[in-house]
Write a protein that binds this DNA or RNA. Sequence first.
DNA 1: GTCTTAGATGCGACTCATTTGCAACTGGAA
DNA 2: TTCCAGTTGCAAATGAGTCGCATCTAAGAC
Lengths: 150, 150
Amino acid sequence: MPLPQTEMPGRLQAHFADRGIRMTQQRRAILRVMETTTKHLDAAQLLRKAQRLDASVDRSTVYRTLKLLKRHGLIDELDLMHIHGEGHYYERKLNRDHIHMACLRCGKIMEFVSDIFEKLKGQVEKDCRFRIVVSRLEIGGYCAACRGAE
Amino acid sequence: MPLPQTEMPGRLQAHFADRGIRMTQQRRAILRVMETTTKHLDAAQLLRKAQRLDASVDRSTVYRTLKLLKRHGLIDELDLMHIHGEGHYYERKLNRDHIHMACLRCGKIMEFVSDIFEKLKGQVEKDCRFRIVVSRLEIGGYCAACRGAE
DNA sequence: GTCTTAGATGCGACTCATTTGCAACTGGAA
DNA sequence: TTCCAGTTGCAAATGAGTCGCATCTAAGAC
């Protein structure tokens, strides 16, 4: 289950330019972190990493930028089944939606892309006449390694 | 899309007895609300309704009871795409998992049961060797009535 | 390059959901 | 009826996220 890292680096910044959104020093730092991270970050982690690139970045700017990215559909917000607390996690939205699985024992997060998931969304759109903008499937349970142990 | 209300009333209380969990006046009120409500309640709404049955119920008891119910797999926790704020919503876990759809325009919450969803979970269990304990699929978008309008 | 200003920022105080410590209370087994 | 582990109410704490406001700055116009 590799991460579907098929997008170009710099893509978020390109989106900003395309849509005429002002680019600031702080946003550049935050976007760079979002573009280069391989893990799901919460707001506090994102803040810490962004501050390493630009020490002036403030917590509220991180939240405001996350809200902006969400509004433009450039990132997804995740709970990861709250196995590490009540906050949210963020990841760039890539070409293909994927499922998040969280192991309740070891805390590992796995991702999975499935045609059946696409089919399911198609069914919802058709049978419920519902236009899907964003979808989130999170699963909690036990990963292969932990199944025996638990 | 009717609610899959196929369980007996009193079932939550029966579960408590079966598992030797102490039944208190306050828990009885909270369980009764969970058993009889037809809507998704957040903690504050659940508190208000429970207090109508037993005025002594406290906010912290509601949270503690919700945690207990979650731990025993008797309720599901939902975000409903955060369209009404950051808190959580709860519903009894019934026989069949269902999808929650939230209309981003009118705020309506819809539910949908799908065999394809079951098939997708089966695929995850098999292909990822992952034992599913809990799953949550939430979809945000526009319902049939709002599609034209927006 | 300089001017201009709408939009962005840092800061600190705030809100709101949820948790916790603790002394008092109580369900239900013996 | 007693007993005590488990439960409760209360009040205070925590922690994520938001907001008002004075200041700053990106970037288009000249």
